[in-house]
Amino acid sequence: MPLHDASYKHWEGVHLGLWHRRFAIAENGLTSCLQNRSIKHLVVICWVTALLASAILFMAGQLLVADSLIVQWVGNLSLELQAFAGMLTKWLEDHPEISVRTTQNVLFYYYSIALMPMSIFSLGMAMPLLLTRDLASNSIIIYSSKAVNLFDYLVGKFCTACGLVFLSWLGPLCATWFFGNLLSPDWRFFWHSRAALAHVMVYGLASMLVLGMLSLGISATSSKEKSTSFYWFLWWILGAVLTPIATKTQPWLRHLSFSFNLDQLAMAVFRVGDDIKVAQDNIPILGDMLRQVSARTIANMSSPEIGNSVLALALMIGAAAWIVAKRVKPE
């Protein structure tokens, strides 16, 4: 028997609003995800890359400072490099609107593309923790008997998936942009790189919506934990393998891969092809190197199949919503 008062006590406080309850579901889901060691490690890796990318931006920024350690170090290597660094510095000073914008847009495009697999992988690992376990344990009945309904529950779970995408993708990207520019010698970099941030946000949020919905859909397909993770990875890997084959045979098949569609979306948002053209025409030395990029590649990057990709993603989201509506019910 407890030594303290163990009798029932009434409570007369004020209930918090609906979004607090939805947030509680999302927070609980995210906490469960981060208790998984593999997911935790993946997230840490993503933030380590953010640190590295911030360091690269910092060093690029230091090229603008004539007496910075980096400029001195480059200068010490050889006179040619010293001249190159001086020219770059001059050019960066004269045309920051082109140099900063273009450089950061290209950098963040490739960084976004590089981080996406980490995010997809962590979602795959988290698949059982989204809906699968709740379907297996029937705990949806507990949620439904509280002051939330199925929609609130799904909003909470969707936010869990989005939270994971944020932690493993959008968060590191935004942090890189912020800290990279914060450490730059000129705070106008924030202004000149605003396009890169806008692109990251548009692409990241759109991808978050897509991946969040698709992961919920896959997570609801089965009540077996291993199955849903398997389906997710299978879809992703098959898509990646089939895309190059389908390009030469049936190009429409590529749209069955969500990662291909997201790549097309990235090209449409960042418009890296245009930036490469600008770089070819305006950036000294680096522009000469970029001239080796073929016109076809630039054309492909400038005109992604955005219409078909958006349609394909919309259909996938619709299918995921249908699966969730069919499968997620109390009992």
Partner: peptide
């Protein structure tokens, strides 16, 4: 039985209270 797997007893009851709107 329809508890949330992997949760500790007191965490589970706390979570249920939060779902009802308790801070």
């Amino acid at each position: 039985d329809c508890h949330i797997p992997g949760m500790v007893g007191c965490e589970y009851v706390t979570y249920c209270a939060q779902l009802c709107g308790l801070p």
